Amino acid sequence: MESFLVAVNAVIPFFCYLALGYTMKIRGVVKEEFLQKLNQMVFRVFYPFMTFYNIYKADAESLPRPLLLVFTGASILIVEAILIVIIPKIVKENPRRGVIIQAIFRSNFVLFGLPLTIAVFGDSAASIAAMMVTVVVSIYNTTSVFILEMFNGEGKSDIKKTLKAVAANPLLQGAIVGLIFFFLGIKLPGSLVTPIAAFSNMTSPLAIYVLGGTLQFKAIRKNLKYLVPTLTCKLFILPAIIIAIAYAFGLRGLELFLLIAVYATPVAAASYPMAQNMGGDGELAGQFVVISTAVSMFTLFLWIFFMKSVGLI
């Protein structure tokens, strides 16, 4: 019963935010154009506050072990390399290859992972999860660009453009500023910390609400042959493999759960506009985001319930 309650309490808030956003859209309370602009504001303004604050408030004893950071970064890169070899042998259409590879390795870690970790382990785990953002988001944003360009028919990658895009990422900018304040011991006055904390707390509910308002379930049937196997691998098979290997490397408790937050959360929402603008199958990319978000409400519950039941967390 305890395991069941932990899983329910962690997942239900996400479902409520999604359901409210979707309900407001279909009832005409909010329009698509407004949600798109609000989504840009959340990404460019609120996300940096969240990554900054979670690192700023950390204490030296809460830093993640180097083993966790190295394992996470190395595992993502290895998974990407394996997929680059395997997917082209299975999928014939070039625009779909990069989209499928991205859907399997790239998750919505910032949007779901941070608040999910706090829901299960409490506020003390927020700073460790925020530190993970710097590793995960850096790899995601850099490698996703190269992979999509690799399969866009041209085979060329603009390294300068890629590095510039990575440096301009608001999440990384917030995390870097947070790291500077953390390591230099810079303290802000309470009059500034209070609104920064408030903006940080607003980020996840607002972002998931917007995601719920932009969910669309059209034209899914024709892509089922790609959706079902890809998301089965993304939400079940790959997380199971990663957890087994991580356990063998000595990672435990919160560290194992953070890997679930990296690998078993929905496909990153940012993968959709990237695919649209870089020669990938934008429709398929959008369906990966929508379906994985809906299905993950149940799969994340199962993962949390399982890990709690067997004593992994």
Results as ranks from 00 to 15, higher is better:
104 I>R: 12
114 L>H: 07
196 I>R: 03
1 M>N: 12
207 A>H: 05
56 Y>C: 00
276 Q>L: 14
279 G>E: 11
89 K>W: 13
202 M>W: 06
48 P>N: 07
129 A>F: 07
130 A>P: 03
19 A>H: 01
178 G>W: 00
111 L>Y: 15
240 A>G: 10
269 A>G: 06
223 N>V: 06
109 F>Q: 01
29 V>I: 11
15 F>P: 01
246 A>C: 03
293 T>F: 00
191 S>Y: 13
12 I>P: 01
214 T>F: 02
181 F>K: 01
220 I>R: 11
95 P>L: 10
197 A>K: 15
206 L>H: 00
268 A>C: 07
261 A>L: 05
168 A>K: 14
21 G>N: 09
234 K>D: 11
310 V>M: 04
120 V>W: 13
147 I>Q: 06
57 K>W: 05
49 F>V: 04
173 Q>L: 15
224 L>W: 05
192 L>D: 02
130 A>M: 02
131 M>S: 08
82 I>V: 15
7 A>L: 04
243 I>P: 05
7 A>H: 04
183 F>L: 05
170 P>S: 07
126 A>E: 07
297 M>A: 13
171 L>V: 06
188 L>Y: 04
89 K>P: 06
249 F>I: 01
237 I>Y: 04
192 L>F: 13
120 V>Y: 14
222 K>D: 14
134 T>M: 12
261 A>I: 02
212 G>P: 04
202 M>V: 11
38 L>P: 10
260 I>N: 08
115 P>G: 12
311 G>H: 02
263 Y>C: 13
57 K>P: 03
106 R>P: 10
191 S>W: 11
277 N>C: 05
212 G>Q: 04
223 N>L: 09
308 K>W: 00
97 R>L: 08
277 N>F: 02
262 V>T: 12
130 A>T: 02
240 A>H: 09
121 F>E: 10
183 F>A: 06
81 A>E: 11
270 A>D: 12
187 K>E: 13
116 L>W: 04
248 A>P: 04
268 A>G: 07
62 S>L: 00
122 G>A: 14
115 P>C: 08
101 I>Q: 04
244 A>F: 13
172 L>F: 13
133 V>W: 04
69 L>W: 12
62 S>Y: 00
173 Q>P: 05
90 I>C: 12
241 I>L: 14
156 K>T: 12
216 Q>V: 14
250 G>L: 08
131 M>E: 00
13 P>G: 04
92 K>S: 15
